[in-house]
Computed example of a mutant assay.
Amino acid sequence: MTYYGWILYNGHLSGDKFKDYADLLQKAASEAGVRTDIKQNNELLPLLTTNENRLLSNETLPDFVLFGDKDLYLARQLEQLGIPVYNSSRSIELCDDKSFMYQKLAKENFPIPKTILGPKIYRPSQDLSLPMEAVEKELLYPMVIKEAFGSFGEQVYLVHNRNEMMEVVQEIHHRPFLFQQFVSTSYGRDLRLNVVGDRVVAAMKRYSTDDFRANITRGGSMEPYDPTEEEVDLAIRATKAVEADFAGVDLLFGESGEPILCEINGNAQIRNIYECTGINVSDKMVDYVVQDLNTKRGNQQ
């Protein structure tokens, strides 16, 4: 069974890592005998009319899409056209919005840092009305403030007092944000587990000596890691909770070394973990997609 697919990334993000992600997947697909084209999201505009629901482009549609972006509307459009999308629009929706993600994880009793969601504020304001004392009493200092939308450790702030808190909130309050407990026992270190389907296929430990965030893009270091059964189970269950086919799951270290779920990245970059572990996650992703497509076609016959 042969397939033709699109590998999609965002056409307006600067930096080589997004195209590199697509290139890794295309190489893996080629080695698996799967023909693919790399597309940018701005090449594939959805067209909606009373009688039509298609793409503005008249290109031949693929059998599947590897969706390395967060363009939720395009993912939904492709699904409405009957194209399997990996990860699905539902997964993109759950992973991209951290507030939505934490609500989902809390509902299913996952171990997450204590989190307080900020209110919807439509426009910048000098007159903010927020129950700061209640937030401080619940979370204590230092605490983390996160914008709901952000990647690579950006839009994440550590504050140590009311003045620092208000400075950050004043800067970001017109965008969705949240307050979160700071897990001090995990300062400057975390785990990244890459999940494909029902398996953790690669894992690494990340650490930083001068930043509470351990992201490699922020100067952190990395080393291969052999996760415990508890960490593997948590990563797989978390991936299923956000309905993802594959994900990069970030875990923190609790007071007794227990894993705490930090975030689930639905379109996690795979270059760093490849260089760290020698495991090419893109090979596993392509194998998963081919097997899933074979199953879908078998069920339709």
Rank of each mutant, 00 (worst) to 15 (best):
D37Y: 04
D96G: 01
R76N: 09
L48A: 09
S129K: 13
G220V: 10
Q180H: 06
L56I: 15
G68R: 14
S151F: 15
L178I: 11
D283N: 13
N215R: 14
I264G: 00
Q103P: 00
S91F: 02
Q269A: 12
S88C: 02
V65Q: 03
A238K: 05
N10I: 09
V242Q: 01
E167A: 14
I38S: 00
N163C: 08
P111H: 08
Q80L: 15
Q269H: 15
E164G: 07
S221N: 15
T277A: 01
K146L: 05
V281K: 10
Y141T: 06
Q40Y: 08
A32L: 06
G11M: 02
E223D: 12
I145L: 08
V290C: 02
I236N: 01
V281E: 08
S184A: 14
L55T: 06
I279Q: 05
A241Q: 04
R297A: 08
G11S: 04
K70I: 11
V85D: 04
G278Y: 08
Q170A: 10
F177H: 04
P227Q: 03
S125V: 06
P227R: 05
V201N: 06
A202K: 02
D63Q: 03
Y3W: 07
M165K: 13
D23K: 10
Y207R: 06
V135T: 07
E136H: 12
K17Q: 13
K70Q: 07
C262F: 14
A244P: 02
L61M: 11
Q126C: 03
Q155C: 09
I145T: 09
A241D: 00
C262I: 12
L140A: 10
V168T: 09
D63I: 03
D190R: 10
T36Q: 01
A148W: 11
R237H: 08
I279P: 02
S282V: 03
P142G: 07
D283G: 05
S91P: 02
Y288R: 07
Y187M: 12
N109V: 07
G153Q: 12
M285P: 07
V290I: 15
G197C: 03
M1G: 10
Q300F: 08
K137G: 01
F149C: 03
E263I: 10
